[in-house]
Design a protein around this nucleic acid. Sequence first.
DNA 1: CGGAATGTTGATATGCCTCAACTAAAGTGG
DNA 2: CCACTTTAGTTGAGGCATATCAACATTCCG
Lengths: 243, 243
Amino acid sequence: MATVHDAIINKLQDHSEFDDADRTAIRALPHWERTLAPNEDVVRQGDKPKAAVVVIAGVVARYHTLRSGRRQYLSLHIAGDMPDAQAMFLETMDHAVCALGQAAVSLIPHDSLLALFKAQPNAGAAIWRETLIDAAIFREAITNNSARPLPTRMAHFFCEQYYRARAGGHAQPGACRLPLTQVQLGEVLGASLPSINRALRALRRTRTMTFEGGELRINDWARMAEVGDFNAGYLRARKVRRL
Amino acid sequence: MATVHDAIINKLQDHSEFDDADRTAIRALPHWERTLAPNEDVVRQGDKPKAAVVVIAGVVARYHTLRSGRRQYLSLHIAGDMPDAQAMFLETMDHAVCALGQAAVSLIPHDSLLALFKAQPNAGAAIWRETLIDAAIFREAITNNSARPLPTRMAHFFCEQYYRARAGGHAQPGACRLPLTQVQLGEVLGASLPSINRALRALRRTRTMTFEGGELRINDWARMAEVGDFNAGYLRARKVRRL
DNA sequence: CGGAATGTTGATATGCCTCAACTAAAGTGG
DNA sequence: CCACTTTAGTTGAGGCATATCAACATTCCG
C-alpha cells in the first residue's frame, strides 16, 4: 500500500471491476502527501476544499461540532477511504475531518477527479459506490446510537471497525489498530466518559475482547457479533460489472 | 408535480444545471406508478430491487429493524426523493422503505437509469449529488440523536422536515404535512412514547409550533431554529455547473 | 522530575424508560 | 344508529441507566 493509487485501487476493486484503462487513469492522478499529528484537522466544517482526501495510513475521522462545543464523531476511515469525497459535488463541508492517531493522507485535486469521471465513467461509478457504502455506514450509526443500549452499541462499533480493517487488509488475525481515547470513544457513541469506561471494563471482563493502547483485540468474534447485534450486510457490496 | 419526471427534474434542478438533452432523457424514462396504504412497505431489508423508487406524493421512510424487533426510522422522503437510489449500485437493501401516511411512488427500472447515466453523465452526477445530500442528512441524524437532549432533538427534526418541504415547494407558509404518529416520532428520535408526548407538549406550550393530525405548524421559525440548534447548511448544495 | 493526558472509581442527581391506567377519537359491523 | 373495537394520545408512579461532579491513579513525555 505504498502509493495513493494502490490504496484507492485496492479499496475500489473490492466491489468494482476495473480494466487496465481504469487503473492507468487512476495511476495518473496527481496528488500530494501530507502527514498529520494526532488530532490535527485536514478539513474544517465550512471549508470549500479544492482537493479530496485519501487516507494512506493511520485513522482519520469525520466529526460535527455542536453549538455547545461538544464534538460528535460520525465515522472512522482507514487506508483507501475518501472521507470528504462528497465535497467534489457539495462544495461546502458540513463536517470536519481530523486524524485520530498519527496519520498520513494524500490530496487529489477535484478537477483531476472530475476529469477522471468523464474519461472513465466506470471509475466514477466505483467512487460513487464507495460513497453509497459510506451512507450505509451512517445509517447503521443512526440505529446503533439511537436504538441500542450502551454495551451493545459499543460491541457493535468494535465489530464494525475490526470488520472493515480486516476487509481492507489492515488487520492482524484477531486484532487491529484503533487509536482512540476513551473520551473520543464517548464522542463516537454519544456517551459520557465514565459510562464508556464501565462499559469497556464490562466487555473486557467477559474476555471476548480488549481495547488498550490503541489496539482492538477480538478474542471471540462470534460472541462479539452476537453481543453487538452485528451483521456485516451493510458493509458488503457485491462485485459489480462495469457501468 | 403531475409526473415522475417532473418530480425528479424539479428536485434535481435545485442543485444541478440541466440542458434540454438531460431533461428529454429523463422524460423518456419508463416507469410505473404504485399507491401505498399507510405503513405499507415498498421495499424490504434484504431485497434486491430491480427498479428505483421515486416519491410522487405523501411521505415515505427508510427504516431498520433490529433483532429485538424494534424499528428505527432513518430518514423521511417527499416528492422527488429517491429513497432507495443506492440499490442501483449496492444490490442488497440494508434497510426497508415504507409509506407513512397514504402515499404514491413511481418505480423506474435500474437498467433504464444506468443507461441514462451512460448517455447523460450530467444527469447521473445530479443523482449522485442527491445521494450525497442524503448522506449529509444521515450524518446530521447521527449527531442529532446522539448528542442533543430530547427537546432540542425534536425541535431540530421538525425544523429539518419543514425546511425540506418548503425547499421542495411542498409547504404552505408556516406549515407542512407530516403524517407521523407519536409512536413513529419516537422511532425516529430514539425515544419512548411517554417521553415524546411530554417533549411535544412542552414545545406546544411555548407556542413556537404545533404538531397535530399529521400537520406540522411552525409559528416562530427563528425561535424554533434556535431551540433546535438548527442550521440548514447541510441541506444546501450550491447550484453546480455540468459535469 | 514535574506536568499533562488518560484512565479508574465512587457518590449523587436526573432524564428517560417501563409499566400501567385511562381518555379521546375514529372506524367497523351488527 | 349505536355498541364495540381499535388506534392514538395523555398522564402518573417507580426504577434504572447514564450524566454529572469529584477525586485519585497511572502512564507518558518533555
